[in-house]
């Protein structure tokens, strides 16, 4: 089994729980407020990350790339939110945005020289199909969320 798999599964578990909390949280406060408070949650973790490294050890390029990665992630969240605000049906917009790994795959193949064999391409496509299918909610589920 590949080494990265365990780390990826940890991310899946943590993000999966975040997804559940998100369903419940928006019943209590607005999506705007969630976006702000959850970023404060990220900041809570910051001091622990500083243990064992000095900023002077890093190059400007490293700092810029890391920071831009955070900008890109936040802009993604903001755009989805804007989309839903501009009259998107969640049942269409959310499955559509679930296709984002495709962009990462294309960029990694084009610019980082990553190569996938046929089996892995099949896995990538199956994962994309899975993400889209799982994010399609029937109306009664949205109802249940509103009552939770």
């Amino acid at each position: 089994m590949t080494g990265w798999l365990w780390l990826a599964l940890i991310a899946v578990v943590l993000w999966g729980v975040v997804g559940l909390l998100q369903k419940v949280t928006t019943n209590h406060i607005s999506a705007d407020a969630v976006l702000i408070w959850d970023r404060i949650g990220y900041v809570v973790v910051l001091p622990f990350l500083l243990i064992g490294f000095r900023l002077s050890q890093l190059g400007t390029r490293d700092i810029v790339i890391g920071t831009l990665d955070g900008v890109a992630n936040s802009l993604g969240a903001l755009c989805l939110y804007k989309s839903l605000q501009s009259g998107a049906q969640a049942s269409i917009a959310v499955p559509l945005t679930a296709l984002y790994p495709l962009i990462t795959v294309v960029l990694a193949v084009a610019f980082l020289g990553e190569r996938l064999d046929r089996l892995h391409w099949f896995g990538v496509i199956l994962a994309l199909v899975a993400s889209v299918l799982m994010s399609i909610e029937s109306p009664h589920q949205s109802q249940a969320q509103a009552e939770a």
């Binding site: 993604g76 755009c79 501009s86 998107a88 790994p101 990462t104 990694a108 980082l112």
Partner: peptide, 24 residues
């Protein structure tokens, strides 16, 4: 439509997030 444009932008930004995550 505006919502579709935003949804596509969200998907692009998150795709870039994965890519820059690897580069970094």
């Amino acid at each position: 439509p505006k919502w579709l444009l935003y949804a596509i932008l969200a998907l692009l930004w998150w795709g870039v997030f994965g890519f820059l995550g690897k580069v970094g």
